[in-house]
Design a protein around this nucleic acid. Sequence first.
DNA 1: CTGTTAGCGCGTTCAG
DNA 2: CTGAACGCGCTAACAG
Lengths: 295, 295
Amino acid sequence: MEQAAERLGYVPNRVARNLREQRSRVVGVMVPDIDNAFYPMLLADIHQELVAAGYAVALIVDPHHRRADVSRLRNLFDASLDGLIISTATLDSDTPAVLHRRGIPIVLSVRTIPGLDVDIVESDNVAAGQEAARHLLGLGHEDIAAIMGPEITSTTRDRLIGAKEIAGDRISPERVFHGHYTHESGHAHCRRLLLGDRPPTAIIAANDVIAIGALDAARQLGYSIPGDISIIGFDDIPMASWHSFRLTTVRQDTQAIAIQSARRLIERIEDPTCPISHDKYPISLTMRSTTGPPR
Amino acid sequence: MEQAAERLGYVPNRVARNLREQRSRVVGVMVPDIDNAFYPMLLADIHQELVAAGYAVALIVDPHHRRADVSRLRNLFDASLDGLIISTATLDSDTPAVLHRRGIPIVLSVRTIPGLDVDIVESDNVAAGQEAARHLLGLGHEDIAAIMGPEITSTTRDRLIGAKEIAGDRISPERVFHGHYTHESGHAHCRRLLLGDRPPTAIIAANDVIAIGALDAARQLGYSIPGDISIIGFDDIPMASWHSFRLTTVRQDTQAIAIQSARRLIERIEDPTCPISHDKYPISLTMRSTTGPPR
DNA sequence: CTGTTAGCGCGTTCAG
DNA sequence: CTGAACGCGCTAACAG
């Protein structure tokens, strides 16, 4: 029978099955920016995990970081998506709350929003900031600048909180800059910093992409690294280990976060009553060649 | 009326509509590898174009470059996908032919397969190879190596054909290497090349990621670039312009290819009888700092 | 244990 | 011009 079906080229119609079963076995994955090497990495592992569990992945790129854009999501939430992994959350975005209130299974991945009763999978970013500052202080740095991402992202906020806890006023408030999570932003802020008077001896960048931008700017101005200036990033994307960079960075276990985000969402979909979890993964320092004692 | 619907939180059920209308307004996009910066770039623009046209994007990552894996695709082809953009085609893969025979709208993007009656959107890769060789010959190079991708990809084949057409035996057959499209492959092959006797004076890499891997290996061995060795890539991914690299490369108009791939697929879906097109976009040389005259 | 049927929520069609 | 009924293809429930 099944062989006959096979021969006739029969394929069960998924759409009909979806209608009947009231689910689609498709989940959405929202990323802020697909050109930033971190997210493809995250996406690849989330994708693999979801596909292995029999779910398809609908990609949702939110390039403008606009909040509350439920209207576009609604198109996808007319029962055609079983759930959503959100890695675009900002502290002021209400989209996750709206979706959650509607009973749509969501998981906040990488970035978090405080006070929301949903599953969260992230790194211990406060500890990450502490680790970065501890490393620079241990090397003897006393004048540290920070080139961060948008203030409204939890990663920037938590990493900065952690760094300040340890470094105190060795990171002076006027040496903290906020911009996008891009090479260009790291490049521009570092350049301005080094062309001003009294450049810092070390820079904490909110992620590796910014750090590499800063590294490029410093080299372009003839600075030697880490001799003239130390630079530390976060994430440990593959590029950080390339010989041209050899970037010291606070590693987060992106793969574990990706896999866990996928699993949590599947759990939530298959049992909406299961208890809410907040997974916070440990971080670790990866020392390479962009940090050293100040002159 | 509509306001009332709005208030009651009514959302039309897409799945039911899909069943009725016999289409899903979801399009699949297959990429070989999401960690290679080129594909996120392509994906971002394809995504934007499709979303603007009212289609959702289902991401399909084919990490193992396995051919003929229709079984996994069948899951997606039970009417839950309206069409597919394939950027993973290899010369020996029969998946596209199978899908095409089943009447499923597909577009081959970036890579091509000869002799298949489907819409194709690619660069003029033969011209790209010619341009690279012409540039190196113009600088006076007479001993050129090539670090390419898999032989079964049309991009590697065409770029190599073009380069050989111009360079002739200045690219000797034993100096042509095939590997993956990765930083690691570029790094390993370049390293072996430079540690052997009689290293070449120039390297053509099949894409920018390989080229940057080669660049890293050369620097690691103390080579100065372009003084000791010239390196040229293909694609012009954003990273190629970063100060640490300043890579000379043959640019392809990835954005145009992405947008056109999306549009062609939509056309094909909405009018299956429209004539088959083969778009071949022009390329251009982007000269930066990794090529120069040989010693 | 096998075969039949109802209905998922839409859009379309056909009757009023 | 408005409203009821049908059917897309499947699965679950139910009858034989």
